[in-house]
Amino acid sequence: MTKPTHIDQMNGRTRGAFLDDLRPYPEEIQFVLNRMNGMSFWAWSLWRAPEGADLLDSIPFSDEYMQCVGTADACAIGVRYLDPDGTAHQYAVGRPGDQSGEPTEVIYYDDGRHSVTVYPHEVFTADEAAVVFYAYFLTDQVPQPYQLRELDLSWLTAASDEGAD
């Protein structure tokens, strides 16, 4: 086992050091993603721990991460990056493809209580997603030839502003 450098989180709740104690990291990523069933396990996130963090002491969050939702048969991948000024940008990850018109593929998660709609080329199987996640694990970037589509999250700001009244 190597010293953990990343943190993973399941269903937006359970998080811990991402370990290679049972299998090497590429196989562990593939194993985890293949367990996604859309009901009891429907979301997985991965991010690099801060330099020098003692993951036995605390498990810090990050403003930059890769995540996916759905099932092992059909999941959507997202990634979040920060600009140097701290502005966050959220992207859908996909293979090269047509982005004309509106997205049409609905990925359900959390036992069908939630969904995300993406383009057909943005739907991945767990094994396909594992390739993208492992590259992100190594480099903190989405590899070529995958493309990013920025998501409009302004509704989140508007919703939080409305709640401030």
Rank of each mutant, 00 (worst) to 15 (best):
M1V: 12
K3I: 13
P4N: 12
P4K: 04
H6F: 03
M10S: 12
M10F: 14
N11F: 04
R13M: 01
R13F: 00
T14M: 05
R15G: 11
G16E: 11
A17E: 04
D21I: 07
L22I: 10
L22V: 14
P26A: 00
E28A: 14
Q30Y: 06
V32D: 13
V32F: 05
R35T: 08
R35P: 02
M39G: 00
M39F: 02
S40E: 03
A43L: 02
L46K: 02
L46I: 04
A49F: 01
P50M: 11
E51Y: 01
A53L: 07
D57L: 05
S62E: 03
E64A: 02
Y65R: 05
Q67W: 00
V69M: 01
T71K: 00
A72L: 03
D73N: 06
D73A: 10
Y81D: 07
D85V: 11
H89Y: 00
Q90L: 15
Y91L: 08
Y91S: 07
Y91R: 04
V93D: 06
G97Y: 12
D98H: 05
V106E: 15
Y109H: 15
D110N: 11
R113A: 12
R113C: 10
H114I: 06
Y119R: 04
F124H: 05
T125C: 07
A126M: 03
E128I: 03
A130Y: 02
P143N: 10
P145I: 05
Q147M: 01
L148C: 07
E150S: 01
E150I: 04
D152P: 08
L153Q: 10
A158D: 13
A159R: 13
E162H: 08
D165Q: 09
